[in-house]
């Protein structure tokens, strides 16, 4: 894994202390996640296992430690979550759902394992593609999460994300999906979970990313949405998700990735945001939290680190704002 140009990790000890990223601590924290089987929390969060693996693996790649988790064990686990119908569950024995199918595909892409998938599960890629395509509502263009039918722009984005990584976008009606996104747009330039819902940074990330994949960013009012997104930055440097809400590290990602796709990242103060994200580290045991002093988790760890990567923090691998994956991986999958 190539690191982006600029000072490497070795140079980081020269940084002022408030600008230090504790790379080794974060690597160890992520490695420790699967060894916590004596904690009830480990079992209570089994429904997030595959997402967690995607978050951890992506963070490690961005930190420049792509091999910190054993590749064959990761691959083995991912395949153990794959159902006959082509969908992935959160863990073995959990039902197939879009949310985990996307994570499964993202992990396979990051491991460069699509060929291995097809060798071990004949027609594997095609099967996964069919599972996703089957969840599109032909009338509205949106996507359900699973057979039970809940619809949300998160699933629409997930579908386009995973299908494009597998080069199977032609299995769905992209124009219809774009139409649906348009119907979720609000006067402020943002998007909600469904038509009529309030603009929310998380949903804006899904809609802007989906439009990026569809090649239809021309439908977004860049200045209007860019302005709304830039107003998410608060005095302490952190970003919130909606007007008059508190800052939170995960919004560093939802907001910044959209600003990056709209080429408006310079509309917020990157230095202050970097400092805020770094304050959310646990300097002893590694990992990042939602806010300074809070308990860390792998979700905020990856989105904090991915945010730092967008902010060009020295030594981190480049992240793709549309996919939240290493740019090197998406370049390989998409051929661009």
């Amino acid at each position: 894994m190539a690191l982006v140009s600029g000072p490497g990790r070795g140079g980081m000890s020269d940084m002022p202390v408030e600008m230090r990223l504790f790379v080794d601590k974060h690597v160890r924290y992520i490695q420790s996640l699967d060894t916590r089987k004596d904690e009830l929390e480990y079992w209570l969060t089994e429904h997030l296992r595959l997402n967690g693996l995607y978050w951890g693996l992506t963070a490690l790649h961005l930190l420049g430690h792509p091999d910190a988790l054993p590749r064959d064990e990761v691959l083995e686990f991912v395949l153990s979550c794959l159902h006959d119908n082509g969908g992935f569950g959160a863990a073995p024995g959990h039902d197939a759902h879009m949310l985990y199918t996307v994570s499964g595909v993202q992990i396979l892409a990051t491991l460069d394992a699509f060929d291995e998938l097809d060798r071990r599960v004949p027609g594997g890629r095609q099967k996964i593609g069919q599972f996703i395509a089957g969840l599109q509502d032909p009338e509205t263009g949106t996507f359900a999460g699973d057979e039970w039918g809940e619809r949300d722009t998160r699933f629409l984005y997930g579908a386009l994300n995973a299908l494009s990584l597998m080069k199977l976008l032609h299995l769905v009606n992209v124009d219809k999906a774009v139409e649906h996104i348009q119907s979720c747009a609000n006067f402020d330039g943002g998007y909600g979970t469904s038509p009529g819902a309030e603009s929310h940074s998380g949903q804006i990330f899904t809609c802007v990313s989906a439009l990026t994949i569809a090649g239809r960013l021309d439908l977004v009012d860049h200045d209007k949405l860019g302005a709304w997104l830039s107003e998410r930055q608060l005095k302490n440097g952190g970003l919130n998700g909606r007007p008059e809400k508190k800052e939170d590290v995960c919004y560093s990602w939802w907001v910044m990735s959209s600003l990056a796709n709209l080429k408006r990242l310079h509309w917020i103060d990157g230095r202050k945001l970097t400092e805020f994200i770094l304050q959310c580290q646990d300097p002893e045991l590694g990992g990042l939290a939602d806010r300074p002093g809070d308990m860390v988790d792998v979700f905020h760890t990856v989105f904090g680190i991915a945010g730092l990567s967008l902010l060009k923090y020295p030594g981190l691998a480049e992240v793709d704002p549309t996919y939240c994956m290493p740019r090197e991986v998406t370049r390989r999958c998409l051929g661009k």
Partner: peptide, 13 residues
């Protein structure tokens, strides 16, 4: 696994 607003001091005894 995605916790919000839980103080670290309270959680890491």
């Amino acid at each position: 696994m995605a916790s919000h607003g839980v103080s670290r001091a309270a959680a890491t005894t």
